[in-house]
Simulated assay, not measured.
Amino acid sequence: MLVGVGLGPGDPELLTLRAVRLLREASAVFVPGKLAYDLVRPYRPDAVILNFPMTSDEAYIRQCLEENAGRIAPQALDGLAVFGIIGDPNFYSTFSRLCEVISEHYPEIAFSTEPGISSITAFASVANVPVAGGFFVSDGNGPESRIFMKVRRPAALAADLKTEGYTEFVLVERMFLPGQQVYRGDDLPEESDYFSILYARRSDA
């Protein structure tokens, strides 16, 4: 198995307890650069630094992904491999692309992720900016998806979003709390708990 583990925004004290545990338990740990290595070094000085270039050369990016997949896959096949990444592995990270490449050659490898403090929430703390109401996050491209918090009527909200071209929906209710539920597609309840988040994605994204 390969687990993408979020290492937080860069402060070693902002690693989660779960991240530290997985780093210690893993049969092998990989990181995409020196900053990530410095964060995992107290727990895994044997972590392997891989090359993930910051470039727009898609051919070179693909070449590096293939090479990295070849180094990670044997460890993920035989045990628990951890890929530690700055921030959160599901927010603007290379982990999803890496998993896609590994899956092409090693479909038997399973993947999962463990969250880390993302730059989005860390920014609000460092800048002392309280965030309330809706806000827009972008990497420079147009919005492909939307996230709604405190969703009390998810089925009705999804129906409204379909008129705007959204077709993929995921509702997480009571995340990391007792009674956690995950609903996908059209299998959304009429009402949900206060602690609910709905993810919606356009079909053309």
Rank of each mutant, 00 (worst) to 15 (best):
P178M: 01
Q180L: 08
K162A: 00
R153F: 03
L177V: 02
F169A: 08
F195A: 07
L177P: 06
L198S: 06
V182M: 09
Y199R: 02
L171M: 10
R201A: 11
S196P: 13
D187V: 01
S192N: 05
Q180D: 11
F148A: 01
D187A: 15
T167N: 05
L188A: 12
F195C: 02
E164M: 14
K150C: 02
I197V: 15
K150W: 09
M175W: 07
P189C: 10
S138R: 01
K162G: 00
V182W: 02
S192F: 03
M175P: 06
S192H: 07
V182K: 13
T167R: 15
Y199F: 14
S145E: 11
V170N: 08
T167E: 14
E164R: 14
P143W: 03
I147F: 15
P154W: 01
Y199M: 04
V151S: 04
R153Q: 08
P143Y: 03
Y194R: 02
D160S: 14
R201H: 09
E168Y: 09
S192V: 04
P189W: 01
G185P: 08
V182H: 08
Q180I: 07
V182P: 15
L188F: 05
L161S: 04
E144L: 06
S145L: 09
Y199G: 02
R184A: 12
A155D: 04
Q181V: 09
V151N: 07
P143A: 13
Y194T: 04
